[in-house]
Design a protein around this nucleic acid. Structure first.
Lengths: 259, 259
DNA sequence: ATTTCGTTCAAACGTTCGTTTTAATATTAG
DNA sequence: CTAATATTAAAACGAACGTTTGAACGAAAT
């Protein structure tokens, strides 16, 4: 009646292989035949177990995101419980949100860096069904963290927080996916960047940890940056340059950063 | 002998349409037939004028990146000339690099937001020929700006600067591409974020300017963030915890940011 | 007027795509 | 053991893909 014995063997072998191939080649460029032959299963096995190629991709993500979503919500629950009503520190929120994800990269049982890279890359896939899928999968978690940031930064306009959350997601996704993509842009091997001295067989586990250690200060620095000033002509409906916008305005200092 | 008369009409109509469709659907999911029928040209026109689909994509980018690369180098040249040997301020470098790009989004003649979105999205395309193409196109500019940041931030390890440049590129790309992608993640329409009050027909020009005004402080804040501390077990070749790395080390403060 | 050459066109090429079908083969239940 | 069911296997489906072909067209040059 149910797939008990080794039917899940084929299923999970397909999921593992598809996860890696989707990461390496993207969704469109990865064919069913490539997947099934690499997984050493019959071509029809994907349609039998999952129904379609789209459903396969969804299942690849559902398998990991179920854990990630639960972990992220639990991390936030624990923080808010400890705070006992007091607003959280932004660093705590970022650690809960991004740290939880980056810790997946250190654990091969949770997909490791393969899944992290796939996640970072797939977020930019233009396919409609992918976007709607992620919207549904992410909605609850994003909303919770958004609200947490709102109360953690009461003086920052909510629109600004959402933008910066957007920026942070982008920095993280690129940093993850780019360990074999954007190294070509920066002109450096990732091994050269993980540390001044690294082992020749750059381990994914240590790479994920280094990435987290480098990324978190950057994100926190961006989140707490001075608010932008809108000194151009405002194109609004009612009144030009409303005084309500000036309250939270603050000049961006042209400082000379010494991190 | 040369394409003088109206041959360039077909050529540029193909380039314009391909630019938009590649942005909307991605490279793999955009077929030659979709492009040629939308451009109202014959199916064979692409292969006649460009040789192949891959060459078409390259030409779509070369057309814009030629201007962008020249502008970026010129902006840096001017800055270094004005500085007369003195190191530049990081804010100047970021403004030259990212500001130049974001200003393309305000100018439809340079591709506008369509090209910006395409650029942000295509950087994550896994196809081999795309990565090698971008590597060649970006190499010189990235190298110049990398060196400028090195001398602007002499106390920051070069590896750290490259990482943060990587993060900044990611934040920008996502912010650009995500104006119709990641809004689904943040659960907000982009119109809600561009300002508290916006026109109902959200103009791309004002959107690009708002994006730049929001993004630059974020990037600068991330760039000048405190250096990360590596308190985990170092897996290096020769000596554990070399003292040379401690010189520039600085504890990440657990500050409560009030931007 | 005729040749020349850049361009456009309709049609077809061979290949690969995701999916379906039909039969054979394990696995479990009665 | 037999019947029912779940899984695998081989083969084929129609559709869509990027590319090529060879003829027709149009504007200059000889």
């Amino acid at each position: 009646m149910s797939d008990q014995k080794n039917g899940s063997d084929t299923r999970e072998r397909i999921l593992d292989v598809a996860e890696r191939l989707f990461m390496e080649n993207g969704y469109e460029a990865t064919s069913m035949r490539t997947i099934t032959s690499a997984a050493e299963v019959n071509l029809a096995a994907v349609n039998y177990h999952f129904g379609s190629k789209e459903a396969l991709l969804r299942e690849v993500f559902r398998r990991r995101l179920a854990w990630l979503n639960h972990e992220r919500l639990q991390a936030l629950d624990k923080l808010e419980e400890q705070a006992a009503g007091a607003p959280l520190k932004p660093s705590q929120i970022l650690e809960a949100f991004f740290g939880t994800l980056l810790r997946m990269g250190e654990n091969p049982a949770l997909g490791g860096m393969v899944f992290l890279r796939l996640l970072g890359r797939t977020l930019t896939e233009p396919a409609e069904f992918i976007r709607t899928f992620f919207a549904g999968e992410y909605a609850e978690v994003i909303d919770r963290y958004k609200l947490a940031l709102f109360s953690a930064l009461p003086d920052v306009p909510k629109a600004e927080i959402v933008w910066r959350l957007h920026f942070m997601l982008g920095a993280m996704s690129y940093a993850i996916a780019g360990t074999d993509v954007l190294q070509v842009v920066t002109g450096c091997e990732v091994g050269d960047l993980a540390g001044e001295e690294v082992t020749d067989e750059t381990d994914d586990t240590v790479l994920a940890r280094r990435l987290a250690q480098r990324l978190m200060p950057f994100l926190l620095g961006g989140l707490r940056a001075p608010l932008p000033q809108f000194d151009d002509v405002q194109r609004i409906k009612k009144e030009p340059l409303p005084k309500t916008a000036r309250d939270t305005r603050e000049k961006t200092p042209d400082q000379d950063p010494r991190p």
